[in-house]
Design a protein around this nucleic acid. Structure first.
Lengths: 239, 239
DNA sequence: CGGCATCCGTGACGATACTG
DNA sequence: CAGTATCGTCACGGATGCCG
């Protein structure tokens, strides 16, 4: 739902905007694509969102079947929010938005916040065609992504029937999950043994994300250190 | 601009939402993807938008390089709004949103407005792989689309450098334009001789749009009348 | 502490009326 | 026809407070 008011148009794009057209909603989805997050983590990685708006969005998203709220296992009892399958199906939307926005990214403004995992979606594009668990180390932090784990395009409408509550929970992000389920990227180091570890500085990562610099060229120029023994690491070093 | 306030995040998706995250903006783009439109036409096909908000959005979009305002040729002096190349590059975003929203379209509610050309984007998906100028006739009206005229996915960042004003104007929608330029669909009958004409009722069009019914199956079941002599029409009849 | 609810000032939105 | 002007309402952003 946008603001509580619907567009009232019999059009699938308008219906989508009824659900995710509200301010902050798609950015919350971007955060949750990295896996289950606590309220405070979300609030920290979404600078500018007020506490009540965040709580309100999370409630609306749960009502619309985009997220579920789960109590963490025994130790460290806390709530985490995670995407349902329907919510995770928004990945292509964020990818399309990100691809379009790259042309206008420009230089980093002094007021711009940055989080390491915000580079995950663009890097996933740069790694299109590759497969494997990749850990990325930036000055801002570490994140990981599972290249080839999800179709980059065309998730399509072949998923859940509607926004009914009670959708199946989004599978956990444990290492070793099969392709297609679980988050395609996540905050922090990779859970298991990564197939490749990329170390690079922010400028290089930005250039790759914007498409100004090919990942292989960056490796060749020594602007990306590639470690790891997986076939993906070998391919990146050789290319 | 979203609301005039930016998210202030160095993230391409957030930057995209700075430009098109405002209420109504993406639906205005949906309308303009059908080709140049006048203010009053936009207002008529966007039920619920107030006049000042529409004017404000059009101003913002022009400032951000998404649209241009042009004075129509000599006779019938009026202004038309049309997308720039950068604005037209939002097609994949609307397609991703539409694909995601199809699962939640459901039945038409009594309060839902409908316009014939809102079926253009879903039908473009149903015609993926085909090429040709198609005219679609519904009870609600007639529209046309150019299948195969634009890449359905991956327009990517390889377009204009930024939202600087003064971008090249969007090419006219004259018939016979090469692939890639000009609107991929439009209101009213096709400008030139269509390669195929599809006549169908709203329920059938809805089922096809939602992916519940394959276009070829609908033709086979007699729910879509296909006329025309183009190879596309022949393929649809034979399939 | 994490997870909100409440209050408040500003501004965006929606409807109507009005003007060039 | 193409907007601008006005106005009430509601959403947003920021700060604070409550409660487990």
């Amino acid at each position: 739902m946008p603001p509580r008011r619907s567009y009232d148009q019999y059009c699938s794009a308008a219906r989508a905007l009824d659900s995710v057209g509200d301010r902050w909603t798609l950015l919350i989805v971007r955060e949750l694509l990295a896996g289950p997050r606590r309220y405070t983590d979300l609030h920290a990685d979404l600078p500018g969102v007020s506490t009540d708006v965040l709580a309100s969005r999370l409630r609306d998203m749960e009502r619309d079947g985009l997220t579920t709220r789960r109590r963490l296992p025994p130790p460290g009892a806390a709530h985490v929010y995670e995407l349902t399958e329907r919510g995770g199906a928004l990945l292509p939307v964020l990818q399309a938005l990100g691809a379009w926005g790259e042309a206008a990214l420009g230089e980093r403004r002094p007021t711009d916040a940055v989080r390491a995992h915000w580079f995950a979606l663009p890097l996933l594009r740069a790694l299109e065609g590759e497969t494997g668990l990749v850990e990325v180390r930036l000055d801002e932090g570490v994140f990981h992504l599972r290249a080839g784990a999800a179709p980059l395009h065309g998730v399509g409408p072949a998923d859940v029937g509607g926004p009914a509550p009670g959708d199946g929970p989004y599978p956990g992000n444990g290492p070793g999950s099969g392709p297609g389920d679980g988050p395609v990227y996540g905050d922090g180091p990779a859970g298991g043994e990564p197939d490749a570890v990329l170390s690079l500085d922010t400028d290089t990562c930005t250039a790759i994300s914007r498409g100004d610099l090919a990942l292989t060229d960056a490796v060749r120029a020594g602007r990306v250190r590639v470690t790891g023994d997986g076939p993906l690491a070998k391919r990146l070093r050789e290319a």
